[in-house]
Simulated assay, not measured.
Amino acid sequence: MNRKKKINQTLKSKLKKMNAKLQNSNKPKYVSKAERAAIAANEAEGSDVSSNEATPDNSADSLVDNSAENNANNDAKNDAK
């Protein structure tokens, strides 16, 4: 292989590798089996707690409070910009 061809080959391979690193993958992030079990346990625990404690009156009040807080946070972010 002559010198010019070898140089072009190495440059092309480096360029391909750099372009491959720039591409985003559609593959979801790996979650280990232990983490999946912990997440499932938290969801099961959270659904039991929320179903036992939630009442129609309390949930409506919390929705109003959350929307007021979200509006205040959005206003603060817009002012910062």
Rank of each mutant, 00 (worst) to 15 (best):
I7D: 03
Y30P: 00
D48V: 10
D61P: 00
K5Y: 03
D65C: 00
N52T: 12
N2A: 05
S51I: 06
L11A: 11
A40Q: 10
K5A: 09
S32W: 03
L22P: 00
A54F: 02
E69R: 10
V49C: 01
N19D: 08
S25W: 05
K16Y: 01
V31D: 02
Q9L: 07
A80Y: 10
K12A: 10
D79Y: 01
S59V: 15
A76K: 13
K77Y: 05
V49N: 06
I7G: 00
Q23V: 10
A68V: 13
D61K: 15
K33L: 05
N71H: 09
A68I: 12
D61G: 05
L22I: 04
A38I: 03
S50G: 01
N71K: 14
M1L: 10
M1T: 12
V31G: 03
E69L: 09
A68C: 01
N2K: 07
A72K: 12
K6T: 09
A38Y: 04
E69N: 08
S50T: 15
K17L: 07
N8L: 12
A38W: 02
E43A: 03
S32Q: 04
A40I: 04
Y30W: 04
A38L: 06
D75K: 15
A38S: 09
K17V: 04
P28Y: 14
P28L: 09
K4L: 12
D48K: 15
L63I: 09
A20S: 13
A34E: 15
A37E: 11
N24M: 06
E53W: 04
